[in-house]
Nucleic acid binder design. Structure first.
Length: 808
RNA sequence: GCCCGGGUGGCGAAAUCGGUAGACGCUGGGGGCUUAAACCCCCCUGUCCGAGAGGACGUGUGGGUUCAAAUCCCACCCCGGGCACCA
């Protein structure tokens, strides 16, 4: 080893910190760049997969800094949550103690990688200084009617013993622990995200620096649909119920109607009838089944109520059924069933022998299933002959004229359930008073600190409920005895505004100073995993819009550009502690140093793709860095004190091409090819040095290499920069520019094809015109051999790159 | 089922606008340096034919458009992800 990696890395890590190179304040006259990674849970140990992501962000921080931006790159901890709590249950150690042991370890590991942050802005969501503003935010939402408590069927994780938001249920299983989720009816707190559904949908359109994939996922999750809600009367009673449909044009084909088992009318209708027992048994069975078990498509069940509804368009009698394929939580919890035009209704009708009427003309030979395609309408009276796009507005107008229905919009997005029956989260600042009902804690009493408990184990209710001194309190309104809310908030509440807090992390008077937030927001580049596409990223957009509406921040979207990095894969699985396939960086730090690891992580493949870890890849980037060191320090070839010759000037031109290529590649997040361009130039430079290189060209080439390398391999670049006598700190140097005159080529290789196959390559002047190119190509002996004896049909010349001769 | 991605050497990959397929790196092979080894340096490394010059083939499969297709169009196969009884 020609240099002491460990010593150098420690030296520069210390200097960046001591000289506060990456600590920033608002400077209104400078362009700012807010560079942010999703703040991590402080798990303690970083593996190679984490390092990849931290390196991307650090690279961008350093790159934008050199480009002259006032770069904010803060770091903090998503420190509430289940891992600390589960550790506490096992060991009895307080989650706070556990968490606060992990944080310094994580910090040390980030420093070890050479990642730089403005640590003055460090925050941790488990601290009262932070979560008092969660509570403040909750109260603001409560007062605006955006936080409310209601009894609802919720997703219950039997292992974690807590409720989950819809977004946290994946394939019917708990997103965290993977166990199957049950249904439960509980009194829970919700945030009214549905009120923002349309805005959350509309504003997606402007987020064009987000991956389409994420935008599509959010669009689907929000799930806007346009249709019609109309009322069905129940024959022989005063009852009526609303149904929602996206296909009102098929209303003439309704042959039955369905109520969800939980629909209030279901109980009212069956009560006291002959079918009562059977129907009640069905409803009870459905109630025990979770929504997940109900999702067995094709195996639909239901029970007839004995009642009929009247079709408003033609007075037809249709039976009313109760079936669990209709969900109470969407639309009106009741539907008109049109088996001819809807496959689910078709399946149900077929099973129970219900009549099927087609109201849209299916293609010839189409039978045996519902036809869901476009018109023309048939069997539909005044709609006959219309296509779907004409029939829908026509029938909606008819309903509206009759006063029986109205065009409506529905969203699949449900309100965000934020209550959690767990200890290690932010307490909800509310009390329940027997006199005054739900009463908010006054703001001046915040934060509501959660007390220590004996037992962290969840038991169907929050462990906080076992602490009498916490639960029993006074009503802030009447002073009488009252009970505190013992649920805590979903940790996604913490993470839905932390990026605003970074703008003003120490503020003890307000959640943040709007003028500071307005300087830094929006986040210019956000980096994180795609797994948050409909969780964190949707919640953060929602809360940002609420804070915008409160007048606290001008931005109505939090993240201008989003970059979702791929995962690191080993042995066919994502690198993770639970899979037992993590590669610890320690050994690699010791053998190759942080720079070689960073460079390999950048070189391994496209950053948005998953990448497969290979043990000897670091070897390659380490060799490259060693070579740079030797070339910079004059250990390779000969450096000659003379004026540059043609060969030297060509190497300088190549250096400038490297500057252009690397810059353009970093700008388009193609870090792997940026590294490749540095390697390509190193090969050129090495050949030049072996042949003998003019000193001034050597110096300039090395200067450019170090500037370009510094965001990726900062330690080695800084050390060489200093040793070569530059008095400045490399990190604060301006990013290099390239000279277009040098980059331009005088002579290029022109490819000559015959019938599309490459037959010759000719060196030509770069400004060759089409006619000369054609003449030159045809003059080539090799081309003449291929053309000989055949008529030339056509010559396509695209100077200076290609000429294609078409013969025969 | 619907909606997105993707499929290129032994491996990771590149090809930014339809214009030299395989840059760069890894692995492997040959050679140099060395008493020897490591490091380092040079050469080769898509498949097939050929002593070589060179030629044929080649980007999941089958068609098509074009002077020219990894790239565009149609159909299909496979892999990954998202949504999924949302009326």
């Amino acid at each position: 080893m020609t240099y002491e990696i460990q010593t150098i890395e420690e030296k520069w890590q210390a200097r960046w910190e001591v000289e506060r190179v990456f600590y920033v304040t608002e400077e209104p006259d400078r362009p700012k760049f807010y560079n942010l990674q999703m703040y991590p849970y402080p798990s303690g140990d970083l593996h190679m997969g984490h390092l990849r992501n931290y390196t991307y962000v650090d690279l961008l921080t350093r790159y934008r800094r050199m480009q002259g931006y006032n770069v904010l790159s803060p770091m903090g901890w998503d420190s509430f949550g289940l891992p600390a709590e589960n550790a506490a249950i096992k060991t009895g150690i307080h989650p706070r103690i556990f968490t606060e042991q992990q944080i310094p370890r994580m910090k040390a590991q980030l420093r070890r990688l050479g990642a730089v942050y403005d640590w003055d802005r460090e925050l941790a969501s488990h601290t009262p200084e932070y979560y008092r503003w969660d509570q403040w935010l909750f109260l603001e939402l409560y007062e605006r009617g955006l936080a409310y408590k209601k009894k609802a069927r919720v997703n219950w994780c039997p292992v974690d013993q807590t409720v989950l938001a819809n977004e946290q249920v994946v394939d019917g299983h708990c997103e965290r622990c993977g166990s199957p989720v049950d249904g439960r009816d509980l009194d829970q707190w919700f945030f009214r995200i549905t009120e923002y559904a349309q805005r959350l949908l509309d504003d997606l359109a402007a987020l064009d620096d987000w991956p389409d994939r994420v935008r599509t996922m959010q669009r689907n999750w929000i799930g806007r649909s346009e249709g019609c809600t109309f009322s069905l009367g129940v024959e022989g009673t005063d009852h009526a119920f609303d149904v929602y449909t996206t296909r009102p044009d098929t209303v003439f084909g309704m042959t039955f109607a369905v109520l969800a088992p939980e629909h209030p009318l279901a109980e009212a209708l069956i009560s006291g009838t002959a079918l009562e027992d059977e129907a009640r048994a069905y409803i009870a069975a459905a109630g025990r089944t979770s929504e997940i078990d109900r999702q067995a498509e094709g195996d639909k069940t239901g029970v007839f109520t004995g009642f009929h509804a009247i079709n408003p368009v033609n007075g037809g009698r249709v039976p009313i059924w109760i079936a669990d394929y209709v969900l109470m939580g969407y639309g009106t919890g009741a539907i008109m069933a049109v088996p001819g035009q809807d496959q689910r209704d078709w399946d149900f009708a077929t099973k129970y022998g219900i009549e099927i009427i087609r109201t849209v003309q299916p293609p010839e030979d189409f039978e045996g299933e519902a036809y869901t395609g476009d018109g023309p309408a048939i069997n539909s009276d005044f709609l006959d002959g219309l296509q779907m796009a004409e029939a829908k507005p026509a029938i909606i107008s008819w309903f509206e004229d009759q006063g029986r229905g109205v065009g409506t919009v529905n969203f699949r997005l449900r309100d965000w359930l934020i209550s959690r029956q767990r200890y290690w989260g932010c307490p909800i600042p509310m009390v329940t008073c027997p006199v005054d009902g739900l009463v908010p804690i006054p703001r001046e009493e915040l934060p509501v600190i959660h007390p220590d408990v004996e037992d962290y184990s969840p038991a169907g209710q929050s462990p906080l409920a076992t602490v009498e001194s916490f639960v029993n309190t006074e009503c802030p309104k009447c002073g009488g005895p009252a009970r505190r809310e013992t649920d805590t908030m979903d940790t996604f509440v913490d993470s839905s505004w932390y990026f605003l807090r970074y703008a003003d992390a120490d503020n003890s008077e307000e959640i943040f100073d709007p003028s500071k937030a307005n300087y830094w927001m929006e986040v210019d580049q956000y980096v994180g995993g795609v797994e948050h596409a409909v969780l964190h990223l949707l919640y953060a957009r929602f809360i940002t819009k609420v804070l915008h509406d409160m007048g606290l921040v001008e931005a109505s979207e939090p993240f201008r550009a989003l970059f979702t990095q791929g995962m690191l894969v080993k042995d066919g699985a994502k690198m993770s502690k639970s899979k037992g396939n993590v590669v610890s960086p320690e050994e690699y730090y010791a053998r190759y140093g942080a720079d070689a690891i960073r460079l390999f992580e950048m070189f391994i493949g496209p950053p948005t793709d998953d990448a497969i870890w290979s043990d000897n890849g670091v070897e390659g980037t380490s060799r490259f860095l060693d070579r740079i060191w030797r070339m910079a320090t004059g250990e390779v070839g000969t450096i000659e004190d003379r004026d540059p010759a043609a060969a030297d000037r060509e190497i300088l031109a190549e250096a400038h091409r490297m500057v252009r290529n690397v810059t353009e590649d970093i700008d388009r997040f193609s870090f792997n090819t940026a590294v490749a361009h540095l390697m390509t130039f190193a090969n050129t430079l090495q050949a030049g040095l072996r042949a003998g290189l003019a000193r001034e060209v050597h110096s300039e080439a090395i200067r450019l290499v170090l500037l370009l390398l510094s965001p990726m391999a900062p330690h080695l670049s800084h050390e060489l920069w200093e040793r070569l006598g530059h008095g400045s700190m490399l990190a604060t140097e301006p990013w290099p520019t390239w000279n277009p005159d040098l980059v331009a080529r005088d002579v290029v290789t022109m490819v000559v094809q015959v019938n599309g196959k490459v037959r010759d390559r000719i060196e030509v002047s770069a400004d060759i015109d089409a006619e000369t190119a054609e003449r030159t190509a045809l003059a080539s002996e090799r081309i003449q051999e291929w053309v000989e004896g055949k008529p030339i049909r056509k010559v396509v010349a695209r100077p200076p790159n290609i000429v294609n001769v078409v013969v025969g």
